[in-house]
């Protein structure tokens, strides 16, 4: 098992020594930022939005982005 965990473990422990707080927070927030970029860039054809764009409150993609923004806020606050 050490062959798996040691290299990664050493890396993370080094990161911890140099302030894992900001690193962890940046990683989690980065994941949600990447998710927002992915959601925003999905082609409309894939979501069946080709004929007419739905109203904002009925737009599932917009709601998903809002939820992801809320997650960024939570990890900023408590991360």
């Amino acid at each position: 098992m050490t062959m798996f965990s040691e290299p990664l473990g050493t890396l993370w422990l080094l990161a911890a020594a140099s302030g894992a707080g900001w690193m962890g927070k940046a990683a989690f927030i980065g994941v949600f930022v990447a998710l927002i970029v992915l959601l925003a860039s999905l082609p409309a054809r894939m979501l069946g939005e080709t004929e007419c764009r739905p109203a904002l409150w009925r737009n599932v993609r917009a709601w998903a982005i809002l939820v992801a923004v809320a997650q960024i806020f939570i990890y900023t606050l408590w991360g």
Binding site: L8, A20, G24, G79
Partner: peptide
Amino acid sequence: LLPPADHPVYPWP
């Protein structure tokens, strides 16, 4: 929400 990397059960990585 994010314990340090050497946390015994829930290291953030």
